[in-house]
Nucleic acid binder design. Sequence first.
DNA 1: TTGAAATCCAACCATATAGTTGTAGATGGT
DNA 2: ACCATCTACAACTATATGGTTGGATTTCAA
Lengths: 120, 120
Amino acid sequence: MPALTRPSTSTADLDAIFGALAHPTRRAILFRLRRGPASVGELTEPFHVSQQAISKHIAALHKAGLIIQRKHGRESRCILRTVALREAGRWIEFYRPLWDERFEKLAEYLASTKSRKLKG
Amino acid sequence: MPALTRPSTSTADLDAIFGALAHPTRRAILFRLRRGPASVGELTEPFHVSQQAISKHIAALHKAGLIIQRKHGRESRCILRTVALREAGRWIEFYRPLWDERFEKLAEYLASTKSRKLKG
DNA sequence: TTGAAATCCAACCATATAGTTGTAGATGGT
DNA sequence: ACCATCTACAACTATATGGTTGGATTTCAA
């Protein structure tokens, strides 16, 4: 088993996940879904855009694996899927060791020296 | 002090942060910077795109607050800045309570029932 | 001082994104 | 059977994104 050298979720997946999270409306939709499933209509209400625009956002969230959809009659209920969020969280967690304040200070110090021979 | 009802980083900031993380080249740059500062030239080497393209990626990372830059002579050294990553992590952590497997099962169950009177 | 190196800026191009309007298809209620 | 509702699809528009090339600027070195 090789040492972990980088976060392991596929890069295409992460493109879709982070891309989906990069829009405020989509984050707001996820925020709403935290409270439970909702239909497309219910998700549209709070926003000043068309239902079709919300459908596109939903498609982006779906593609990223951030939600699933279930048909109930003519409604399509959206359900938050946490797996993808967990993947994104895992990618970010990989950098946690660097969050130590002193580490960042050291990095800046190193950058300010002329020794650029750190390539190895 | 009001109860926390949503992640608190400004939405514009999160747009920029998640947007920056949504591209594999930019994630690879961050991954490289984890090992320490690097010049634009050094960051360009591993990729099959022009230096100018990398400069644009660097600009996106800078705008998102994910890196800082220091001039040293004609070089511009890029340094990972962990604050923005921490913000992104904080946003995602907000959803951690839902990561419980059973919770997700319950959500799917609720979605499969006809009771759509959960609006409150 | 002359030239090469590191970086950035500008213009351009192709494609993606986020929105619109119009409409079609399926479902539910009467 | 009919009509209204919910959602998705298609076509269009404007802007953003990711890349290119060419050239300007700054700095190091001889």
